[in-house]
Design a binder for these strands. Structure first.
Lengths: 249, 249
DNA sequence: ATATGTCGTATTGTATGACAACTTTTAGCC
DNA sequence: GGCTAAAAGTTGTCATACAATACGACATAT
């Protein structure tokens, strides 16, 4: 009988762009098991005909579904429904945001990353990226002079280094950790406080990192970044924080 | 001076579709705060000119960014960077799952983490955790003997080490990266293949890590784990990866 | 002077046609 | 049957055109 999946297009929403509507309709079709995992969608031309839109719209809709991991396209072959993706992203429970131990743990994570990030940046940085790093470093001093707390500038500095790795995942993860830390420290305070009093030392640490990256010295960059993170933990740790659990026995 | 955001487009990645590359480049540009929240991107035509691609490609890339919530487009006005949500989790674009470069980049991320994880584990591990690590190592051999591909056992091994850091975020992040890698390598294949042929070397690397952790030697553990990851990258890099066709028939 | 209407321009949304790159199927030959 | 080559089908990319919308400039009315 009807072995071929039907294309019963319910009257799609009357709001939003055509791409939005087609996207929604396709998502619904896939979800309603008319097209199971591995099934091939009709060709873009066919879908354009069925929906009464141009292939442009279909392509944009499919592109979105691709970015959501629902389908995958193979050139010359077609568009196929993906297996249910166990898309469990990495997240940090916001409930831990005001927990100081969590902050230290996240910084510990950063310590692991920043060392490698600095090393890779020292190896791969382009002159343009080096300039961006130097600008960001200067931005910290400016912010400080302007009376700003300098948190944003500090983040921008570390971000510019992460960007120089040419590995977007380092940048994305750094970004993510920073959003957590800024929100967390906004609760626990103590960031600006410690930062202000020790700004000289921090500035020195930053300079060491930049110098190493400028010199293409991966090992020195790694060491400088690690030292920077270590000091950051100590600053936070000494700022009236409870100690992390240490290796007991 | 020129306050307008620069558009220093470095040569983008040489793999994947044009849309993939542009998408990645734009994400990086937005993340690197050349374009802060609320800023307007250049018009699609301008971007097409700068990247040297057609407007079609730009539109599909922007469409993906829209579906990820990074930007929003207003007809007649332009494309604007959206305020980053507080709890946007760290995730990896599923569209990059079959991109071999992404796999290597994620492994590079793991390389940064595993070194520190091993070092921390060596410092903090409890006897019980040490036992768990040894059991996991033995589990790899058992799985291998049983004819299993040993992927799950390998994951369990690294997980047991991450658990010994007493920092739950290391465990969670490792977990996340593994789910990505398993899904990705299930597409690109080559994991078991390379693993089988080089299992002796892998086993040796594992043993070195365990020994260092057992001896509470943080530096040795870090070195061993980094070496392990480095080799993993080389193995994947040399392996002849090919996209896998879904067995729909 | 302020408010309002109109217009022109810039920008995104959509349509269409074409070609390239790639995959699958088919036809033909041995 | 098995192999090769042609053909058809599909996604990827490009170029162009027009529609729909937003926004500022300018003129006009109150």
């Amino acid at each position: 009988m009807d072995s071929a999946p039907q294309f019963n297009v319910e009257p799609i929403a009357v709001t939003g762009t055509l791409t939005d509507r087609v996207c929604e309709a396709l998502t619904q079709l896939i979800a309603s098991e008319d097209f199971g995992a591995g099934a091939r969608l009709p060709s873009e031309q066919q879908m354009a005909g069925r929906f009464g839109v141009s292939r442009t719209v279909i392509r944009e809709a499919v592109s979105r579904l691709k970015s959501e991991g629902l389908v995958e396209s193979r050139q010359g072959s077609g568009v196929f429904v993906r297996e249910r993706n166990i898309d469990t992203p990495f997240r940090i429970d916001p409930a831990l945001m005001d927990c100081r131990q969590s902050v230290l743990q996240v910084i510990e994570l950063r310590q692991a990353l920043e060392g490698e990030i600095a090393a890779l940046a020292a190896t791969r940085r382009t002159p343009a990226q080096m300039t961006a790093i130097r600008d960001a470093l200067a931005g910290i001093a400016e912010a400080e002079a302007a009376g700003d707390d300098g948190v944003d500038a500090d983040i921008a500095f570390h971000r510019s280094i992460a960007a120089a790795t040419d590995n977007p995942h380092f940048l994305a993860l750094t970004e993510f950790l920073f959003t957590f830390l800024t929100h967390a420290t906004r609760i626990t305070r103590g960031y600006e406080a410690t930062k202000r009093t020790l700004s000289l030392q921090v500035k020195d640490e930053h300079q060491h990192i930049v110098d190493a990256i400028a010199a293409n010295d991966a090992e020195a960059a790694r060491a400088a970044a690690r030292q920077h993170m270590k000091c950051a933990m100590q600053r936070l740790g000494s700022a009236n924080l409870k100690k992390l659990r240490q290796p007991s026995a």
